[in-house]
Write a protein that binds this DNA or RNA. Structure first.
Lengths: 186, 186
DNA sequence: ATCTTTGTAGAGTGATTAGTCAATCTTTAT
DNA sequence: ATAAAGATTGACTAATCACTCTACAAAGAT
C-alpha cells in the first residue's frame, strides 16, 4: 500500500465529514494508518495537503470526463459525452465531487492561481465559443453559458444524490436532463 | 448599536473570508468590538453562533424573496418575481449569499433539522407541484425541477458576480435568463 | 559490504483556541 | 431609591493543534 495515497484517501474522507479546519492532521494520519511525521514528510503543511488533494481529484475528474470524447464526433455528441461522463463520475465518486464543491466555497480556493484555473476552464470555454461561432449555441456571453452548464450539472447531481435511483433510471434522468440543457442553450 | 448584531456581522465577514474553523471566536469578538465573554453571553458555543447566523440570513433572504409575490398574479409572474428578488438580493448581499453556499457544503448543514429544511422548501415545492398540476410546468419529478431552478439561480449569480455589469445590464441578464429557465421547465 | 538517500515513526513543543468565571457596569421594575 | 436582572468585561484555563526533531529502518547505488 502506498502511504501517500492512504493519506489522501483519509484526508478526503475526513474533510468531507468534518471540514478542513475541523479535521486535525493527527486524525488524518491515524485514519491513514501512518505516523504523524509521515504526513509531514509528504506534505510540509496542512494547506499543501489540501491543495494537493484538490489537484489530484480535479485531475482524475478531468481525465475521466474526456474519455470517448473523440474529435470526429459532432459538437453536440462531444458535449453530451462530457456531460454524461461528469455526472457518472460524480455518481461513482460522491465524496470526491462533494469535496470539489466544498473546496470551491472555501478560503483555500483563492490559493489556486488564476493560470491553473484558466488551464482547467480554457478547453471548455473554447468548445463553447466554437459552438457559438458555428451558430449551434445561442449568442450569449461565454461565461454565462459556462456557468449555466456547470450549475445545471451540479443541480442534476444534487437530484441524483438525493433521489436514490436504480442505474437504469439514473441514466434516463441524465439523458433527458441533457436534452433540457441542450434545448436551453441552442 | 446592538452588540448581538455586531457579532453576527463580524462573524459573517470573517467566516466568508477565513472559513468557520479558520475564524477564532476571539477574532469575531474583536472585529465586533466586544469582549470575548460577550460573544458567549449571546451564543453559548461557536456552533450555536454559526447556526444562528445561518438562520438569520436565510430568514432575511426568504423575507425579501416574497416581496411583491402577490397571490393574484399568474404562476409565471410569481415565479419570475421570486427569481428576480432572489438574484437581486444575492447581488446586494454577496457575503450573505456566499455564506449560505458555504454553509450548505459544510458539516454544520447536517445540524439543521429536516423539519427546518422542509419548512423552508415546502412552499417552493408546493408552487412547483401546482405548476405541474396545471400543466404549466413539465411533468418532471418535483425534486428535479426544484434542483434545476435552484442551480440555475446559483449559476446566474456566479456569472453576475464575476462579470461586473452595470445595474441596467444586470437586470437585462436576470430577465433574459429567467426566460431561458422558464422555457426549459415549461 | 558500505554509504546515501528516502521513508517512517512518535514523543515533544510552542502557539492557539473554545469556553469559564468572578467582578463590574447598566437597565429595569417596584 | 433600591433591588434584581441582565449585559459586559478580560484575565484565565484546559485542551488541542500544526508542525519539529531525533532516531531508526528500508532500499538503492557503488
Amino acid at each position: 500500500m502506498d502511504k501517500q495515497k492512504e493519506i489522501l484517501n483519509a484526508a478526503l474522507k475526513l474533510f468531507v465529514e468534518f471540514g478542513f479546519h475541523g479535521t486535525p492532521t493527527s486524525k488524518i494520519a491515524k485514519e491513514a494508518g501512518v505516523a504523524n511525521g509521515t504526513l509531514f514528510h509528504y506534505y510540509s503543511t496542512k494547506e499543501e495537503l489540501i491543495l494537493a488533494l484538490y489537484k489530484d481529484i480535479k485531475a482524475r475528474l478531468t481525465s475521466c470526463m474526456y474519455t470517448n470524447a473523440d474529435k470526429d464526433k459532432s459538437l453536440k455528441e462531444i458535449f453530451k459525452t462530457l456531460y454524461i461522463n461528469t455526472l457518472e463520475w460524480a455518481s461513482d465518486h460522491k465524496e470526491e465531487f462533494y469535496f470539489i464543491q466544498q473546496f470551491h466555497t472555501s478560503p483555500f480556493f483563492s490559493l489556486i492561481s488564476s493560470e491553473e484555473i484558466e488551464k482547467q476552464t480554457k478547453p471548455h470555454l473554447d468548445m463553447i465559443q466554437q459552438g457559438i461561432k458555428n451558430k449551434i449555441l445561442k449568442p450569449l456571453p461565454l461565461e454565462l453559458l459556462f456557468n449555466l452548464i456547470n450549475s445545471h450539472i451540479s443541480g442534476i447531481n444534487q437530484y441524483l444524490s438525493s433521489a436514490n435511483l436504480t442505474g437504469q433510471k439514473q441514466k434516463k434522468v441524465i439523458n433527458e436532463s441533457f436534452d433540457l440543457l441542450w434545448d436551453m442553450i441552442t
